[in-house]
Amino acid sequence: MSRLTTDALGLLLKNAISTSSMRLGRVVHARIVKTLDSPPPPFLANYLISMYSKLDHPESARIVLRLTPARNVVSWTSLVSGLVQNGHFSSALFDFFEMRREGVFPNDFTFPCAFKASASLRLPVTGKQIHALAVKCGRILDVFVGCSAFDMYCKTRLRDDAQKMFDEIPERNLETWNAYISNSVMDGRPKEAVEAFIEFRKIGGNPNSITFCAFLNACSDGLFLNLGKQLHGLAFRNGFDGDVSVCNGLIDFYGKCKQILRSEIVFAEMGTKNGVSWCSLVAAYVQNHEDEKASLLYLRSRKKIVETSDFMISSTLSACAGMAGLELGRSV
């Protein structure tokens, strides 16, 4: 590493971030300090801030930020995004407003981070302040900023503000529709989620796995069984028959709609299964009072060394209780 250019050092820092290698990052940082004049070029300083922040060393990231005289919106966004990524939402908001106190305006990448932090902390007043700033900066019409604001309003239970924000987004992309459908389901409004999906299809929208899973959650009621069946066909016609998350959603959907045979067929035809696949079918059996099948499937999953979840264990225990399986319940 004796003759590395600044570009090469930058690439090494990117590699440290992508591989989550703090050791590599610190070695590169030491080389920068040793071979380059202080302070380093702004783009290298930004890489360092991003590396420390994303690898969950926020204090180191702040030290580099404070030692960077030419810090700009990219520098601050590198810090804030890493804090949000690692769940430090309060710190992210603190640094977001610290950036504003320095006179730096957020960009299209900073605002979504701030909205996510506000949503995660359930701070609607703070979210509204950030929304007002986005309007002032002329960023609210950006689809990602608008979608983040919409999601914040949904998560802070401000339905009217959320609907208004959704209506004002000029060009709704797939992520926007996914957010609308998912939040409607989580908010207990499956009919609105179904209506939104139908509207999305009418305007020529092409769903992805997130859309399909959200819609299946909305249809998890006998009233929407036929719609769910239609979605099943649409998903497979669009090549999602090998998508594990979609298949897991179908197992869960059919189980909740008392169509356990269909859940079994989807499970049996899956080329690749994960822990959620097994858990979904165990839960479907329990929901349909097939306690013995649920217990036997759990035992099969253990033989295949499938990673179990708390929900899978609780479902199996419910099955054991249903058939008085004391010995199996103790082993679980």
Rank of each mutant, 00 (worst) to 15 (best):
S2K: 03
T6W: 00
L9Q: 11
L9M: 15
S18Y: 07
S20C: 11
L24A: 09
R26A: 12
I32Q: 09
I32R: 06
I32V: 15
V33D: 12
S38F: 15
S38N: 13
P40Q: 11
F43Y: 13
L44Q: 06
L48I: 07
I49K: 08
S50W: 00
Y52M: 06
I63T: 14
R66A: 09
R66F: 08
T68Y: 05
S75R: 03
W76L: 06
L79H: 03
V84G: 13
G87H: 05
F89I: 01
S90C: 03
L93W: 05
P112M: 14
S118G: 12
A119C: 10
S120N: 10
S120V: 02
G127A: 08
Q129N: 10
C137E: 10
D142C: 10
V143D: 14
V143K: 14
G146L: 02
C147E: 02
M152P: 04
K155A: 01
R159S: 03
R159F: 11
R159I: 12
K164I: 12
E171I: 02
R172S: 08
N173E: 05
N173Y: 02
T176S: 14
W177H: 07
W177S: 08
A179K: 05
A179I: 14
K191Y: 08
E192N: 08
E192Q: 10
E192F: 06
A193N: 10
E195Q: 08
I198D: 05
K202I: 01
P207G: 02
S209C: 12
S209V: 01
D221S: 13
D221P: 03
G228E: 00
A235L: 02
D243Q: 04
V246K: 01
C247Q: 11
G249I: 03
L250K: 02
I251R: 06
D252S: 13
Y254G: 05
K256M: 04
C257G: 03
L261K: 15
V266L: 05
A268N: 12
A268F: 06
E269Q: 14
M270N: 03
G271N: 11
T272E: 15
K273S: 05
Y285T: 07
V286E: 09
N288H: 06
A294G: 04
S301L: 01
E307R: 15
L317M: 13
L317I: 14
S318F: 00
A319W: 00
L328Q: 10
